[in-house]
Simulated scan of single mutants.
Amino acid sequence: MKDRRTFLKQASLVGLAGLLPTTTLLAGDFKAETLASDKDSVTRWADGSRLVVSLSMQFEAGGQPVNAESPFPQNMQKGFVDLPGKTWYQYGYKEGIPRMLDNWDKLGVKVTSHMVGSAVLKNPALAKEIVERGHEAAAHGMDWATQYSMPYETEKKFIRDGADAIKKITGFEPVGYNANWLRRGTNTLEILQELGFKYHIDDLSRDEPFLVKVKGTDFAVVPYTIRCNDIVLIEGKNFSADQFARQVIMEFDQLYRESEKKRRQMSVSFHDRIGGTPQMVAATTEIISYMQRHKGVSFRRKDEIAQMAYEDKNIIRE
């Protein structure tokens, strides 16, 4: 495994100038394998990658409403606080994210952290640490409010307040957005463009990035996932960590086969209080280590993927 300084030097040789810091992990020397890939197959990624993997780390805990959904029965009487449910969320910032951050460093990958503004304000040191360790801070609303029903100006303030909280605490200006449960409204993309955002992820329609027109101007879509998402599989379907790992690896194998002839992006999503548990971090290590044994696989932050989409003359446009 190359150290970060060596990688950055290599990366500059393969056309990554202008992108934000990234970590690419292949099964050997990046430059040599890129050349081999050019001979053996058709790559559709401008940086020479065969398959790009995008990892999400949701930073939501601390920003949830009182008596938010948890693994406990949703039968609290009105006027009382679900105290054990509250501690389930606290695990996300006390144990989950710190454990995942250490694991990302061990594995040598950088991720995109979708941050709820109120969660950032409650745990500013942790939010700042995420950015300081090289990860992207993306906006995820100010809180868990339902934004698709908001009037235009109300939604605009909601999005702006969340992004401003992130910038104030971390110094990182978010360019990507994720709505609560992906449920954006009919005005959301126009608002995001007006506020200076570059991409959103609330789309499940493709396994590769693409551009859409918003008021006549390109806007990037970096597709998200619910198939490889811990809140859906672990909490929603009661998968074990082994089952989660198996499903994600099966998805990777299929996309890797397809990537021989076309541009493919794989997304995997982890939530602070779920993906940061010991068993899930162990499963994540197994998953990513498996991917890293395949030639031409790179791990990109979503802001980097969006930038590549804007610069690619062959990108899909809708």
Rank of each mutant, 00 (worst) to 15 (best):
F197D: 01
Q254A: 06
E304Y: 00
V109R: 03
R273E: 01
L255T: 06
Y93R: 08
A32M: 07
K9D: 13
V214H: 04
K215E: 15
A282M: 09
D218V: 07
G196H: 15
E194P: 05
H135V: 05
F72S: 14
R301T: 01
T217W: 00
F244W: 06
P278D: 04
S149A: 13
T285H: 03
L233I: 11
I315K: 11
W144N: 13
A309S: 10
M308N: 04
W45E: 07
M291N: 00
L55D: 14
T22S: 10
A127S: 06
A145H: 08
L121Y: 09
G296T: 01
F197H: 03
D202Q: 08
N187R: 15
L20K: 11
K78Q: 14
Q279L: 14
I226F: 14
V131S: 15
K94N: 00
E260R: 13
D202G: 10
G196K: 07
K213L: 11
Y199Q: 15
K31Y: 07
Q279G: 13
D82C: 00
R183T: 04
L20S: 07
D3K: 15
R4S: 07
T24P: 14
L26H: 01
I191T: 02
V52P: 04
K2M: 11
T217F: 00
G296I: 00
L83W: 12
S259P: 07
Q193A: 06
A119L: 06
F299W: 02
A241E: 11
Q90M: 07
G79Q: 14
V116Q: 03
D253G: 05
P151W: 15
I288C: 04
G85S: 12
D102F: 10
L204H: 12
S37I: 03
Y93Q: 04
F197G: 03
D253R: 08
Q307K: 07
L204G: 12
A127K: 02
S12H: 13
F172A: 05
K9W: 09
G185A: 02
S56K: 01
A127F: 01
M76E: 03
G275F: 04
G62F: 05
L121S: 08
K2V: 01
Y89G: 00
A137E: 05
E286H: 03
S259F: 02
Q247H: 06
S70N: 04
G96Y: 02
A46K: 07
G162P: 10
Y290H: 07
A282D: 14
K313C: 05
S56T: 09
R293D: 04
T186Y: 10
K168I: 03
G185C: 01
I226M: 14
A32V: 07
Y199T: 14
V111H: 15
Y290I: 03
V248D: 01
W104Q: 09
R227S: 08
G162A: 10
V221H: 04
V214S: 08
Q58D: 11
E173Y: 04
T170E: 05
P21F: 13
F158V: 02
A245R: 01
G79D: 11
M250A: 12
L101H: 08
V175W: 09
A179P: 13
L204P: 13
D105N: 05
I234M: 14
Q147L: 08
S267D: 02
G171N: 08
L20R: 15
G275R: 00
H271T: 15
N238L: 09
E136L: 00
I130C: 15
W181A: 13
F7V: 13
G141K: 05
F270A: 06
